[in-house]
Design a protein around this nucleic acid. Structure first.
Lengths: 341, 341
DNA sequence: CAGAATAATGATAGCGCTACCATAAATCAC
DNA sequence: GTGATTTATGGTAGCGCTATCATTATTCTG
C-alpha cells in the first residue's frame, strides 16, 4: 500500500501548487510569475501575486535549485574577518548584490589553503552561481574544482598571476616597489621593516619583495627587520617599532605591512617623543580612514577594497557562463603622501 | 513519448546513485554513510567512502535539503560591516560553526528593519536551521515569521526586551548608566555628548538614555550635544569634538557612542594641545584593541562581541527544536578605566 | 532455546520546483 | 487571407536526495 501522499511534508507552509490553485492557474505559470521569467499576461500576474500575498508564500529555493541545477548563492571565501580589509571587500560584494536575487555565503579560511579547500568543497554542494576567493594560490584540488565547475570564479586582491576566470585587484609587488621608490625619493636611506609571520599572506610578501627590489635598485638594503608571530595588530606594531629601534637605532624610516601596525608605530613615536617624518618615517598600507584621522595623517597606500569587492561581484553578474577569455581588472592604488614619511 | 531520462541533468557530476553503484550498495546506504547517520557496518562504510573518493563525489545539498525539509545554513543578518563590531560578532559565529556542517549566509540590513525583513524572507527560502539577527526590534512581519518558523532564532547584542527564542548580549541601558555613574564618581560634572543620527541604532540610543538617567540621578545634565549625520567614523568624532568644544567651552568630559568616534576625539585633543583626562575626559564604547594601543589608552567599556557571536551560535547548535523556555544570556561588559577619563 | 530486541540493509515514494515539449490564440508579413 | 511568428499557458517528468516502512541477519534475555 502506498504511503499517504504528503506524509513528510511541511503541512503549514504553502507551496507553489497552493498559490497556483488559489490563483486558478497552473503550477508552471505561477512559477513564471515568481521568477519573472517568460511571457505572462498582466492579469495573470496580478492574480498570482495576490495569491502569493494572501498565502504568505515563500518559495523553496532548495527545490528550485534542484530543479534548475543552479542556485542564487554566491560563495565568498575570505582569509580573515579580523582585518577590516576583508569586511570592506565583503561590503563591496554585498552592495553589488543588493537588489539582485543573489546571496553571499561566507567562509573564513584563516589564510590557510587547506581550510580554503575544505570550505570550498562544502560550498560547492549548494551549486553556487559563483565563487569569490582571495588571491590566486589555491590547493591543486581546489584549483581543479574551480576550473571545471559550472560557476563563475573571481579571485580578488591580487592580479600578479594566472586567474581561473576573473581577477580583480592590484599588483602588490608594484605597490611595494612604489613604496620603496617613493621613500628613497623623499631622502630616506636607512630602512627598517616591521612585519608579521603569516606565511600565507601572499600579498604582504609580494609588497615586501617589491620594496626590497626598489631598495636594491637604489643601492640600498633593509638594515633591520622584525616580525611578530601570527596576526598583526596595532599593539604589535607599537611594540615592534620599539624593538626594532632598540636593535637598530640609526633607522630613518620603517615600513609596515599594513596601517594597523603602522598606527602602532605612530603611537610608539608619540609615546617616545619621536617626531614622525622628520626623525623617523613611518609608512603603512591600506589607507584606512582612521589613519587619516590622526593628528599627523599616516603616509600609506590606499588599496581599494570596497571597489574590488563591488567590481568583482558586478562582473560576475554580467554572465552566468564563463567567457572564453580571462579577465584581469586592475583597480590600482593611490599613494597617500600623509605626514609621517 | 516520455522524454529521455536524465535529459536535463548534469552529466559530469557524480550523484549518490553513482557512488552507491560503484560501492555495490543501495542509494540509501550510501546516503547513510555520507550523513553519518544510522547503523552501518565498517566494511560497508569503507567501500562507500572509497567510492566517494574515487568519483570525487560532492553531495547536492539542495536535493538533501528538499528531501529532509531542512538545511545546514544559518542566516546571519547584521546591521553593518563598516563597524568592526559586527565582523567581530561574525567571527565568533564562524568560530562556533567551524567543524560543524553549518554555514553562515550573511545579509546586511543597514540598520533598517524593512531591509531586514526583506532579507529575512529571502533567507527563509533556504529553510535555514537558524536565524541570527541583531537587536530585538523587527518589523511585525519579520517577528511573525521568526515566531512561527521551524528554525532556531538568536537575537544578539541587546538583552533589554523580549526575545523570540534566544537573546545573547548585554544591557546597553545599564552600560550607559554605569558610564555616567563612573564619570560622576571620577569628579566630572560638565558633560557633553558627541553622537550620530542613526535612528535605528537602538543600542547607542539605550546607552544614551542610561547615561542621562545616571546624570539626572546625580543632579546633572548634558550641557552640550552634537551629532553627525549618518554613520560614525573617527574623522567625524574628531570634527565633532572640535565643534562641541567651540559651542560649549566649559565641558570637562565628552561621551561618545563608540570607540571609533572617541578616538577621533583623542586625536583632536592631541592636535589642539588638550590633555585628555585632566583637561577633558573622553569616554568611548566597545573596547577596541586600537584604542588600547594609543599612547593614552582610551577609557571605555569593553563589549564582548566575539563572545556574543560564539555563544549564540553554540547555543543554537544545542538543539534543532526551539525549547519551550526562552533563553537570555548576559555576556556582560567591563569598564576599562584607561587614561582618558 | 523461544521470543524479543537490535543491527544492517533495501524498496519506494515523494520533497517543491522547473526544463522541456506541446498547444492554442493572437499578431504579423506580404 | 494564408502561412509564419509571437504570446500566453499547461502537462509531464524528472532534479538528487532522504523519510518511511519493510526485511533479514544477528545478538540478547531469562
Amino acid at each position: 500500500m502506498p504511503r499517504k501522499r504528503n506524509a513528510h511534508r511541511n503541512a503549514d507552509t504553502p507551496t507553489l501548487a497552493d498559490v497556483a490553485r488559489l490563483a486558478g492557474v497552473s503550477d508552471i505559470t505561477a512559477s513564471r510569475v515568481v521568477r519573472n521569467k517568460g511571457p505572462i499576461a498582466d492579469a495573470t500576474r496580478a492574480k498570482v501575486l495576490a495569491a502569493i500575498a494572501e498565502l504568505g508564500y515563500i518559495p523553496n529555493r532548495a527545490a528550485g535549485s534542484l530543479a534548475s541545477s543552479g542556485s542564487t548563492l554566491m560563495s565568498v571565501l575570505l582569509p580573515s574577518l579580523s582585518n577590516i580589509v576583508f569586511p570592506d571587500v565583503l561590503r563591496g560584494i554585498h552592495t553589488a548584490l543588493t537588489e539582485t536575487a543573489f546571496q553571499p555565503v561566507i567562509g573564513v579560511t584563516d589564510y590557510d589553503p587547506v581550510i580554503e579547500e575544505r570550505i570550498l568543497l562544502s560550498f560547492l554542494a549548494w551549486q553556487p552561481a559563483a565563487v569569490i576567493l582571495a588571491g590566486l594560490h589555491h590547493t591543486a584540488t581546489a584549483r581543479r574544482h574551480l576550473e571545471h565547475g559550472r560557476f563563475r570564479v573571481a579571485e580578488l586582491m591580487d592580479i600578479d598571476g594566472d586567474p581561473v576566470d576573473i581577477a580583480v585587484g592590484m599588483s602588490h609587488w608594484q605597490a611595494g616597489y612604489d613604496t620603496g621608490k617613493h621613500l628613497v625619493q623623499r631622502g630616506y636611506r636607512r630602512f627598517g621593516y616591521a612585519g608579521h609571520t603569516i606565511a600565507s599572506d601572499d600579498r604582504a610578501r609580494a609588497r615586501y619583495d617589491g620594496l626590497r627590489a626598489a631598495l636594491k635598485e637604489a643601492g640600498l638594503l633593509l638594515i633591520a627587520e622584525e616580525r611578530v608571530q601570527g596576526g598583526s595588530s596595532t599593539l604589535a606594531g607599537r611594540h615592534l617599532l620599539e624593538a626594532i629601534l632598540r636593535k637598530a637605532p640609526g633607522l630613518d624610516v620603517v615600513v609596515f605591512p599594513n596601517d594597523d601596525m603602522a598606527m602602532g608605530g605612530i603611537f610608539h613615536c608619540m609615546h617616545a617623543g619621536i617626531t614622525p617624518k622628520e626623525q623617523l618615517g613611518i609608512f603603512g598600507f591600506n589607507g584606512l580612514d582612521i589613519g587619516q584621522a590622526l593628528p599627523l595623517p599616516l603616509s600609506t597606500i590606499l588599496s581599494k577594497r570596497f571597489l574590488i569587492g563591488k567590481t568583482a561581484a558586478e562582473k560576475l553578474l554580467e554572465s552566468r557562463e564563463r567567457p572564453a577569455e580571462k579577465t584581469i581588472i586592475n583597480t590600482g592604488y593611490d599613494i597617500i603622501e600623509g605626514a609621517t614619511a
